[in-house]
Amino acid sequence: MINQKAGSVTFENVKKTFGAFTAIPDLSLTIEPGTLVTLLGPSGCGKTTTLRMLAGLEHPTAGRILIGGKDVTMLPANERDVSMVFQSYALFPHMSSLDNVAYGLESSGLSRREAREKAEEGLSLVGLAGMGGRLPAELSGGQQQRVAVARALVLEPQVLLLDEPLSNLDARLRRRVRTEIRELQQRLGFTAVYVTHDQDEALAVSDRIIVMKDGEIAQSGAPRDLYEFPASSFIADFMGEANVIACEVVGIDGAEADIRIGSLTHRVPAGRAKPGAASLAVRPGAVTLAEGRGEGLAGRILHSAYLGDHVEYEVETDVGTLFIVDHAVDRILPAASNATLGFKNRGIALISN
């Protein structure tokens, strides 16, 4: 469901410089109404600068930004019809949860009674009905973040911006709150632009992920596409750990390619591959591991670590040392033992060098 108030977002050849430093050289992208798109990347990649330009907290050096088809490039933040959820929650500590949510509504001209009614509706939306009288200090971190989301949503913006919204929460709470944010976005159908450096978070909440590097888009697509079909070794390693190894494309048959990895041959999606030397991204869980020598890629166990539901291995092979995750915890291969490696059909992809 798409909310009728949800707006599109467009960046047209946007450039942003800070003195002699170019943070964003030339950015063009479009975000469809009613979708949750995540800007993902390491520190310094330009994702936060992009979000701040969308929010009106920074202005582009060149190019245009449109929200709902309207050029907002030089408009101040309060005229952009966006709301922002900050990493630090930014709640007023002396005000109740209800008053925090109602604050923006009252500032926009609603009467106190109308603002509080809408604020109560907002708290109900995020599962905090009946908790409006509590101060932020009386709430858990996850509850405080939900108050911040409610405060942003009640303003009914065209676009909701979320800047590292879960980074102050512990791992278990992050999983729960990210699920709540995703379910809320899907139920209400608002447009959201979500900034994070956490790959798991991006995979869990997004309709589309835009991975940024050095102020540019390294790859954009659905979570599954980016994880299973990375376009480069940077994407392969950033979207979850990957072994990047040399291989040879020995034949192409339509959409599939036959590759040779050491003494092992395997078939993978061809993508844009051409015959000859290539690189292969192999997820740690995409490698099969058998004890002793057999048909496959020969290896020697360098290290093994039992982690409850899986075992992590470092295995020396002719194509380099591979990191492998094996869920066969009933047998653990000891260091210095011989092993034979194979590859599954999923979790491996040819990539550009």
Results as ranks from 00 to 15, higher is better:
7 G>L: 09
10 T>K: 14
28 S>F: 06
37 V>D: 05
45 C>F: 03
46 G>E: 04
48 T>D: 06
50 T>E: 03
52 R>F: 06
60 P>G: 03
63 G>Q: 10
69 G>H: 10
71 D>L: 14
82 V>M: 11
83 S>I: 14
84 M>A: 09
85 V>K: 06
86 F>C: 08
92 F>T: 09
101 V>N: 03
119 A>S: 08
124 S>Q: 13
125 L>T: 12
127 G>I: 05
132 G>I: 10
137 A>S: 13
140 S>T: 01
148 A>R: 06
150 A>C: 09
153 L>H: 09
154 V>I: 13
160 L>R: 07
161 L>R: 08
165 P>I: 11
167 S>H: 01
171 A>V: 00
175 R>W: 00
183 E>T: 08
185 Q>D: 08
189 G>F: 13
189 G>A: 13
194 Y>F: 15
204 A>L: 11
219 Q>P: 04
221 G>E: 12
226 L>R: 03
228 E>F: 12
234 F>W: 13
236 A>Y: 02
242 A>Y: 04
255 A>D: 13
255 A>Y: 02
257 A>D: 05
260 R>C: 08
263 S>N: 12
263 S>Y: 01
268 V>E: 00
274 K>C: 09
274 K>Q: 15
275 P>S: 15
296 G>C: 06
297 L>Y: 07
297 L>D: 10
300 R>I: 12
309 D>S: 11
315 V>S: 08
324 I>Q: 04
333 L>V: 08
341 L>V: 02
341 L>Q: 01
343 F>I: 06
343 F>L: 13
344 K>S: 00
344 K>P: 00
345 N>K: 11
346 R>Q: 12
350 L>R: 02
